[in-house]
Amino acid sequence: MRQATELEEMNSRPRLYGLMAEFEEPTALVQAARRAHDEGYRRIDAYSPFPIEELTDAIGFHHTKLPLIVLIGGVVGCIGGFALCYWVSTSVYPLNIGGRPLNSWPAFIPVTFECTILLAALAAVFGMLALNGLPEPYHPVFNVPSFEQASRNKFFLCIEAVDPKFEEAKTREFLTELGAREVSDVEF
């Protein structure tokens, strides 16, 4: 039953995820990505074996919410850590030692500090994974045979079929013009 609906879905969906152009050099990829963006393509992504600062700019991706998520994590950790020390030491388990103050806040700083770092770090890691949509075991780009080299020494630019400007023949021609070594179909 489920298989049948999935098959239906497969048939109704377009055959192509997009077109993938392969480049030899990081500079060529950045230039191609910039040209594609200037041309008006918006649903594009570039793949490289290492982070390239200019590339993010070229595909028009500027902002990430990650620093804000990390800040929230840190603030929650800080308040939570201190609140834990305060609550335990003043309400649930108060120890009167020579009449010293129960809210001895300087002694709570180490735990507060460690909780701040811990929650901020967890927010950074899991925030990054969540925003990137990882883990994602299947992705159509892996169907391109040469894509194995994307984690070695090849550079790729993919224009997705959902882009309003996408027309298979025209886009293929455009990518070839950009100096791609090879343009391949990305199938679902």
């Binding site: 490289s48 990650l66 770092i117 994602e136 075991p137 780009v141």
Partner: peptide, 27 residues
């Protein structure tokens, strides 16, 4: 975890890595 080296992923990755470094230093 399905890492594919997407430029968007790298950007967030680098941000996370730098923030983690900043957190690990005082730690």
């Amino acid at each position: 975890m399905g890492w594919r080296g997407s430029a968007r992923h790298w950007h967030r990755y680098e941000t996370a890595y730098l923030l983690l470094a900043g957190l690990a230093t005082p730690l």
